[in-house]
């Protein structure tokens, strides 16, 4: 069937939205690891998985071995948010989530919650975000 321009554009937009939204959708009966991966992706959605970010993440994980799993990292990054509020941000307000993380990262610097990764002085939050990216993109 040959579609004219308008319906084809609508169809393509709908497909694209599905692809973008897929990782954030909750399906009945989904398992916890999927939830965690979805939360991890929401926490890092704006971060390009560049080699340097992944490398910093791996180095951080090498320093802090007990954080070498997604649930722990997600919990630590979101530690100052109420669980329900965090889940709402994950689902509906990713820009709001990013703003919250910006506050966390400034608070880290303010209170000296910093870490040395490859001689960089980073806030704990940003080091953990790099670690999340590294875990989410392990194959890379």
């Amino acid at each position: 069937m040959i579609m004219d321009g308008q319906p084809r554009r609508s169809f393509l937009r709908a497909c694209l939205q599905c692809v973008v939204a897929l990782p954030f959708l909750t399906f009945p009966g989904c398992e916890a690891p999927t939830d965690i991966r979805r939360q991890a992706r929401a926490l890092t959605w704006w971060i390009p998985p560049s080699n340097s970010v992944k490398s910093l993440g791996r180095r951080y994980l090498a320093l802090v071995r007990k954080e070498r799993n997604l649930p722990t990292l997600v919990r630590l990054i979101a530690h100052d948010m109420e669980e329900e509020a965090f889940l709402q941000l994950v689902k509906y307000d990713r820009d709001g989530l990013r703003r919250r993380l910006h506050e966390s990262h400034l608070e880290d610097f303010r209170h000296g919650h910093t870490t040395h990764v490859d001689r960089w002085v980073l806030s704990r939050t940003e080091a953990r975000l790099c670690a999340l990216v590294a875990l989410l993109h392990q194959a890379g």
């Binding site: 704006w46 390009p48 560049s50 970010v53 910006h102 990262h105 960089w120």
Partner: peptide, 14 residues
Amino acid sequence: DEVYRDIVRSLPLP
């Protein structure tokens, strides 16, 4: 510097 720019890109900045 490129590493730094990647770090900056990874910041949750508005």
